[in-house]
């Protein structure tokens, strides 16, 4: 058995396969690096910056940096976690995230990361944007208030479903998710509940109607264990594989 190449993650050796990113190798080895826009079935996007680590002294997004380029990676440091906390706080302040009444509560990656990083306060003044929900589709509800612009739905719709139902429009603080229909309403697209795009949202934007709160508190994904203990669930896999 030939030894796989390795890099050091917070002082511990992590083996990798050629072509893997630092994130992919770390997760496959059961080591968690906080992330939001990374998804085990999709090409990296590098937009949320939550996975930023010090790779041989330089700040880089671990979801995009190839493992081959890394010798020593620092991730779980107070400095980096503090920056991550700030990013998460900004996301909470930018949208309208009311966790107690959100159907995704307990299964939401943003919320789980907030708990994991010890986000106790908003930290910033809430922007309270006005983003009406779109309930026009018979099976799916879109609650734009919670969008963190990770583009996973955009990527899934384009790459897996071949439909291009979603896109991001606008720039800077005006950036927002749009639906590819003249009316702008999901009910006027060919989106279907079985589409990959309908099951990738890490937060509570894309929801199946009539299923809310069916899983009791205590049995939801991140009730069972904190996100940092679920690294292997995020290990790279093919898009056909569904999340556990």
């Amino acid at each position: 058995m030939s030894a796989r190449p390795t890099f050091l993650l917070d002082g511990v050796e992590v083996p990798f396969d050629p072509g893997q990113s630092v994130m992919q190798a770390a997760l496959a080895a059961g080591r968690h690096i906080p992330h939001l826009c990374y998804h085990p079935e999709f090409k990296p996007h590098g937009s949320c910056k939550v996975c930023t680590a010090r790779v041989d002294g330089r700040m880089m997004t671990s979801c995009t940096v190839p493992a081959e380029m890394a010798t020593e990676v620092e991730s779980d440091t107070e400095e980096l976690n503090d920056l991550r906390r700030t990013l998460v706080q900004m996301l909470f302040a930018e949208g309208n995230h009311f966790c107690p009444s959100c159907e995704q509560s307990g299964n939401c990656l943003l919320q789980a990361l907030g708990y994991d990083l010890g986000v106790m306060t908003a930290g910033f003044r809430h922007l309270f944007p006005d983003r009406p929900v779109d309930a026009s589709h018979p099976e799916i509800l879109l609650d734009f208030n919670r969008c963190i612009l990770c583009e996973l739905c955009v990527r899934a719709s384009r790459e897996v479903d071949g439909k291009d139902v979603f896109a991001l429009a606008g720039r800077g603080i005006e950036k927002h998710l749009v639906v590819n229909a003249e009316s702008g309403r999901l009910g006027d697209t060919n989106a279907a509940a079985a589409d990959k795009a309908m099951s990738v949202c890490p937060v509570g934007v894309i929801l199946r109607k009539r299923e809310g709160f069916h899983v009791p508190i205590g049995e939801r994904r991140f009730d069972r264990s904190p996100v940092s203990d679920q690294a292997s669930d995020f290990a790279p896999r093919k898009p056909e594989a569904t999340r556990g």
Partner: peptide, 18 residues
């Protein structure tokens, strides 16, 4: 019965979740 002391989710349309 509701999962939490406040903001529980026990009652859902058509019944309960636990």
């Amino acid at each position: 019965t509701a999962g939490k002391r406040i903001h529980g989710t026990g009652s859902i349309p058509g019944g309960v979740n636990k």
